[in-house]
């Protein structure tokens, strides 16, 4: 773990309303590393992901992915930089009426900016690769099923396959297991860990379950009121530290 893939330096985010979402957040993530961010609602977890994905621009500080500064880009360069970052949401966000394979293939659209794909054609040459991505999440046999017929856990894995289809260097997951049953949640975390190890992808995952974080993370970042409280390996994080993230927030 030598090179750094995601780097955030001194992130400050102040909304126009005066609310401060992030107050000087710095951290990094390397290829092959699974970093979990823990924190109460409103602590700024999702805001960090949004800054890294280039959806939000930090008021101060900068974000770089693969040594490209996301926070300084816009338009086409931003889109190209985004392709290095795959995103997984709380909901799978698949197009329910299309096949699983078609949904995965849409992940490659950014690399095929042609008139045909703009008019609704899928890049056919990517079919073998899309199938390989489905293989990676263990759902190749469902390739031709409608996405709307999948279970929550399957749909979320297909959304991971779609993110893989964009050939990302990093994966951002925003509460990916929040609407899954415990078993499907374990499956998904196992999958994310395997992807980070085997494919050398940096995975940054926001979670609400400290015990999942302990078991799957290489590093846990604790966030409270827009500040990083700890950034440690799971073995060094004490229950007391985790509990403190959620205490006395009204004060």
């Amino acid at each position: 773990m030598t090179s750094v893939l995601i780097e955030a330096r001194g992130l400050v985010l102040r909304y126009a309303t005066g609310r401060v979402a992030l107050e000087g957040v710095s951290f990094s993530a390397s290829p092959g590393e699974l970093v979990v961010i823990l924190g109460a609602n409103g602590s700024g977890k999702s805001t960090i992901l949004r800054c890294i994905a280039g959806i939000l621009n930090p008021t101060e500080g900068c974000v770089s992915v693969d040594s490209r500064e996301i926070s300084r880009l816009s338009g086409r360069p931003l889109r190209e930089a985004r392709m290095a970052v795959g995103m997984i949401f709380q909901h799978a966000n698949l197009v329910r009426r299309r096949s699983v394979l078609a949904n995965v293939m849409t992940g490659t659209l950014g690399q095929h900016r042609t008139l045909a794909t703009a008019l609704g054609r899928l890049p056919r040459t990517e079919m073998p690769f899309a199938l390989a991505c489905l293989d990676e999440v263990g759902l190749r046999e469902l390739a031709h099923q409608r996405a709307g017929t999948l279970s929550g856990g399957q749909a979320q894995r297909v959304s991971v396959a779609r993110a893989l289809a964009q050939r990302p260097r990093a994966l951002l997951a925003d509460e990916p297991v929040a609407s899954l049953d415990p078993e499907a949640a374990e499956d998904l975390m196992r999958l994310l860990r395997r992807l980070s190890r085997d494919d050398r992808i940096a995975v940054l995952c926001v979670l609400h379950q400290p015990e999942l974080a302990r078991r799957y993370a290489d590093r846990i970042i604790g966030l409270r009121c827009g500040r990083i409280v700890f950034d440690e390996r799971p073995s060094k994080v004490r229950d007391h530290d985790v509990g403190a993230l959620y205490e006395n927030l009204a004060a």
Binding site: M83, M87, T108, R113, A118, S159, R162
Partner: peptide, 15 residues
């Protein structure tokens, strides 16, 4: 989701 994959406006619309 498609915006995040780096797809363009028309692509997002049609897909």
């Amino acid at each position: 989701a498609l915006t995040m994959t780096g797809a363009g406006r028309m692509q997002i619309f049609s897909h």
